[in-house]
Amino acid sequence: MPDARAAILDRIRASLSADPSAPPAPPADYAAIPRSYIRAGRLTPEARLDLFLDRLRDYDTHVVETNADSLRQTIAVILQEHNQKKVIAADSLPPELLPRDFAFIPEHAVGLDDLNACDGVVTVCAVAIAFTGSIVLTHGPGEGARRLTLVPDRHLCVVRAEQVVETVPEAFDRLLPHATHPLTFISGPSATADIEMTRIRGVHGPRFLDVVLVR
């Protein structure tokens, strides 16, 4: 509707023209926005990871710490503990992550209905934020398409220590090169408080989130 477009832009310009305080170009004015909020974290690497784990647990995430050597074994134990049989591995997941004696279903082989019938999914992430207990997916290699970490009931995400930043602005610095990718910030399993403000874990997204931190 080209008429509506022109009419709206005209109305905006007419509304703003009465305002003499606005200089003609936005970039200079944009630079003047006060940004005194905390950008860089102040914690030691160890304290940062501890904060991350603490914040994950606070929002009902199941957390396991491991190291690079025992990563495979750790994942195998988690899958076994929760009786996971049909588990999908995100495409291009680093092979050193996956337990050898477990038959993962490759992501590219499943349709939407298969996805709905699976028990869980294994992915990596791009960045994690300690202060808010969040993992961020840019849906690149090993992170799966968006629906992969949405439809199955259990999501296991492997986070490497060097991926964990302390603050939200630090995370955005790292995400900038991926700004036009689809991005998903995940903080705990899906939840609602719509009935009497009682927090219920697991509505439509995965009801269970496992984070394996490799430190």
Partner: peptide, 8 residues
Amino acid sequence: RMNPYNSL
């Protein structure tokens, strides 16, 4: 501190 999901 952060809601469970943000999508961009």
